[in-house]
Structure formats: C-alpha cells, structure tokens
Amino acid sequence: MNIFRLAGDLTHLASVLVLLLKIHTIKSCAGISLKTQELYAIVFATRYLDLFTTYISLYNTLMKLIFLGSSFSIVWYIRKHKIVRRSYDKDQDTFRHYFIVLPCFVLALIIHEKFTVREVLWAFSLYLEAVAILPQLVLLQRTRNIDNLTGQYVFLLGAYRALYILNWIYRYFTEPHFVHWITWISGLVQTLLYADFFYYYFQSMKNNGKLQLPA
C-alpha cells in the first residue's frame, strides 16, 4: 500500500468521524443529506460482499467493517434517533434515489469485468459511489449557509477521492498492467463533482470567512 492510498483511506475515515461527531455530540444532522447517506450504505453493502469470500488483510477487513457500520448507523441516527431526526432538512433533501440507483444498475449490467452477480454488483457500487454525493451537493446549494462540520465533511470526502487518483497514478507506474478503466473513470467523475465545492471552499479559507455557495 502506498502513501496516497493510506492517506486517502485515513481522510475517508476522518470524514466519517467528523460526521459522527456532529451527529453524536451536537445531536444535529442539519445540512446532511439522508439520501446521500443511504446511497453510501448501499455502496458499501454491495461492494463489501467479498468480506465473506476473500481475505485481503486485517486492515482491509477492519476498514470495511468500519465503513459498513458507520454508514448504517448514520442512516439510523437520521431516521430514528429522537433528537437527531428533528434537525433533518427533509423538505430540502428532495433528490430521488431511483434517479441515481437505476441508471447505475443498468450501467453495471452493461459495463462490468465479468457477468457474475458479484462483479456486476461491484461495478454498480463504483458507479453509485461516483454520484452518491449529488443529493448532498444539491442540499448544500439550497442551504447555502453551511456550518463548519458539514463543510469539513464534504471537503474530506473530496480529498479522499483526489488522493485515490494519486494512488492509481502511482500504482500505474509501479505495478505492471495496472489498468482498470471502470475504477478510474468512475473515480474521476466522482472527483470532478467536487470541483465546484472545492473552489468555494478554498475561496472561503482565503477570505477567512464562512463557506457560502452562490445561489
């Protein structure tokens, strides 16, 4: 494992911790899209099916369990927790799941490495992860005044994706035949979705001000 991959995983972990911190200690999920969180839960559930069949490393297994556990508990908190759920911006978070899930599934049926249940679900999880942030970005755009933790959360998620791209570039040059178009293109699309957010995030840092997206 190279430094970019490790840094990417740790950034991903940090994003989840920031979100749990917000939900668990402040008891608020204001500005957080339940739709995005549910899509991530589906992403991890379909991608980590190999937990039961392939052992890669203790690190890999532990991280998978953490991402699975945290994504489902975040969904539980927003839906079921008696205090947290009151802060959920239900009326603003209107993105429809099937607009995202259905095209990803169809695409996975067409483009995959092998036509087996696991491979199709694996491709599906990559396509879905690429666009799962969309409901969250739409919600940010609508709320406009974004609190610090929500801003950090989205920034860390974007940074995790950018580091994964560096990881693939590194692997491409150090491992023979490391060419994986499905992973690369969906990963690139996913990272590009953050470009706009990054722009305003760095602007707000430069001006030492609050993160605010234009209407």
Binding site: R5, I56, M63, K64, F67, W122, E175, H180, T183
Partner: peptide, 10 residues
C-alpha cells in the same frame, strides 16, 4: 512487483 486488482482497495 506483480499486478493486482483494485479490489484490494476500499
């Protein structure tokens, strides 16, 4: 080094 699949990633 041998070629691996990105399935060892998360």
């Amino acid at each position: 080094k041998t070629s691996k699949s990105p399935k060892d990633e998360l």
